[in-house]
Every structure is written in C-alpha cells, then in structure tokens.
Simulated scan of single mutants.
Amino acid sequence: MRHRFNEPGSEDPLTFAVSERDRGTLEMVRDALAAGNVMLAYQPVVGVATGQPAFYEGLIRVLDDTNRIIPAGQFMGVVETQELGREIDVAALRCGLGALSRHTSLRLSINMSARSIGYPKWIQVLKRWLTRDPTIGERLILEITETSAMLVPELVKTFMAELQDKGITFALDDFGAGQTCFRSLKEMYFDIVKIDGSFVRGCDKTPDNQCILEALIAVGRTFDMFTVAESVESRAEAQFLAQAGVECLQGYYYGAPETKPAWMTPEGRGTPVAAQKRSG
C-alpha cells in the first residue's frame, strides 16, 4: 500500500514540518517588525595591539509575542531571500544609526545583504540620518557577506563607490565561506575583511585551518584590508591568530552580544575609535 505522503501533490511529514516551521518564523518576524519589537545586541571587536574594542558589531534581534529575544541566526535563513529580509536590514540600520547618534564615541558595524542595495526604504533611512548628522557616516561600518556580495559584484562596487564620500567603512563578512572572485574583490572598496568563524574555531590545533587562515590573512594584506577573525572562543585561538597577523578579534572569548552593554549606561565609558580606513 502506498503511503499518502508519496502521492502526487502531497508533502511528506518532514517537508510539511519544515514548511510549517518556516511559515511560523515568517509570521513571528513580520509581527515583530510591525510592532517595532526589534533591537541590536552589541559585540566588541577587540584590537590585538590595544586589547580594547576597536568597534562593535550590532546584531539584529527580534522579540516574539512573549518578549523572548530571538537571535538573527534563528530567522535570517528563512527571510534573507524575501522582502522581509530587506525590512530586517532596514530595521537593523535604523537601530544602528540611532545608537551612533546617541553615543558619539561609538564606532559600529551593521549587517546588510547585497540584496538590500537599491531597496528604497533602506537608502532613505541612511540618507535621512546622514543629512541630520553627517559625522555618523564616519563611524558607520557596513558589513556585506561574501556570499551575497559575489552574487552582484558590479552592483556592490557601484554602491560602495557612491558612499565613499560619506566616510562609510565597508567590511566583507564571512570571508572564506563563499566563492570570491579575486578580480571583483580587487575592484571593490572593502576596508575590512572578517574571516569566517569556521576557520577560526580550533585554529590553535588544526593544521588545515591554520593553512587556510594564513592564506586568507595574506589575501587581506594584499588588498590592504584590515583583518578581523570571527568566533574566537579561547585564549589559545586568540594567541594563534595574533601571532598569525590578524589585527582584530571577535567572539565569545571577548564578550557575548549584549542588548544593554555597559557603555550604554550613564556610568559606562565611551568606546574607542575603530580601525582606520585603507588608503586609496
């Protein structure tokens, strides 16, 4: 006897369960955006030379209907290719620019997908804040994932060129996880390269990761990009990366993302300036 879920037009139980989960995720994110229940969690990116935060990364969080904070990793995979993903980028940018306006010593990176380039709401939010306070651009870092950047390299190149005179810094996120066209990378304006955490974890004792890291660091140097290692979780990893020539380190070893870091309080200290933009 043939099972019902094998019949034409029907879904097997696993596919149905995944579909229902994704549908629920979309509804949760859509409701959170409509209610304004979004915020950033801030994680320090620490300079090897100083041991102090060079800048912070603002990671988008949404609150569900029970006010539980949901990390981006639990919903971005579902929404990234949809318009809802563009709305998430808009919300992250708005939150980040607001934080930069309130904390004048803050240097902050905000994630965006290359798919959001040309999205009217996103560019309207950026222009509105830059008109209000042009100094914000000098403290803003836009992180674009390697995977999305290489989907539309010419569009990314034009977008970055148009924003160069605003003082905005650009970071290539998750470097090594995608398929970079080095000719495209050469023609872009990335100031920072953030090495994907999959090559960082266990790098102090994994020869394969060490070999790949050395190659990625060399690429960063060749293109005059400031290097950041993501997902640093131990002292041994941090020591290896520092000796290998990485300039900044980010991960739970230095601090988990916090929605209310100490520098947000009246008693908190201001944050140091970030890495300088590359010349040229």
Score class of each variant (00 low, 15 high):
residue 212 I to R: 05
residue 250 Q to P: 04
residue 99 A to N: 10
residue 141 I to T: 11
residue 149 A to F: 01
residue 271 T to P: 00
residue 224 D to I: 05
residue 151 L to K: 10
residue 149 A to N: 03
residue 16 F to R: 14
residue 276 Q to E: 12
residue 150 M to E: 07
residue 23 R to W: 02
residue 173 D to Y: 06
residue 221 R to M: 08
residue 116 S to C: 12
residue 42 Y to W: 03
residue 235 R to V: 07
residue 125 V to E: 14
residue 280 G to L: 02
residue 21 R to T: 11
residue 112 M to F: 06
residue 62 V to C: 12
residue 269 R to D: 13
residue 269 R to S: 15
residue 270 G to K: 11
residue 129 W to T: 07
residue 279 S to V: 09
residue 49 A to N: 12
residue 196 D to L: 08
residue 18 V to S: 08
residue 214 E to T: 10
residue 142 L to C: 07
residue 38 V to P: 00
residue 26 L to Q: 12
residue 28 M to E: 00
residue 188 M to N: 02
residue 84 L to A: 10
residue 174 D to C: 01
residue 203 C to I: 14
residue 274 A to Y: 01
residue 106 L to A: 11
residue 101 S to N: 13
residue 162 E to P: 01
residue 81 T to P: 04
residue 32 A to Y: 02
residue 25 T to P: 02
residue 15 T to S: 07
residue 84 L to W: 05
residue 88 I to E: 06
residue 159 F to K: 06
residue 223 F to I: 03
residue 238 A to Y: 04
residue 22 D to S: 11
residue 6 N to W: 00
residue 129 W to L: 04
residue 180 T to M: 11
residue 143 E to A: 12
residue 107 R to E: 13
residue 48 V to F: 04
residue 177 A to T: 13
residue 194 K to F: 02
residue 23 R to E: 01
residue 41 A to H: 14
residue 82 Q to N: 10
residue 100 L to R: 05
residue 201 R to V: 07
residue 62 V to N: 01
residue 102 R to W: 01
residue 125 V to A: 10
residue 232 V to C: 01
residue 39 M to R: 09
residue 161 A to C: 02
residue 127 K to N: 13
residue 146 E to A: 07
residue 207 P to D: 14
residue 260 K to P: 00
residue 248 C to P: 00
residue 217 I to R: 08
residue 212 I to M: 15
residue 61 R to P: 08
residue 140 L to M: 04
residue 168 I to M: 05
residue 273 V to L: 12
residue 108 L to W: 09
residue 71 P to D: 12
residue 155 L to A: 09
residue 52 Q to I: 03
residue 221 R to F: 08
residue 71 P to S: 08
residue 87 E to C: 06
residue 219 V to C: 13
residue 278 R to Q: 12
residue 276 Q to L: 08
residue 182 F to T: 12
residue 26 L to P: 00
residue 47 G to L: 05
residue 253 Y to Q: 13
residue 66 T to H: 10
residue 163 L to Y: 07
residue 134 P to Y: 06
residue 110 I to R: 05
residue 8 P to H: 04
residue 157 K to C: 10
residue 142 L to G: 07
residue 20 E to Q: 15
residue 201 R to C: 01
residue 229 A to P: 05
residue 191 D to T: 06
residue 129 W to H: 15
residue 34 A to H: 09
residue 13 P to K: 00
residue 36 G to Q: 04
residue 179 Q to W: 10
residue 135 T to E: 15
residue 67 N to L: 08
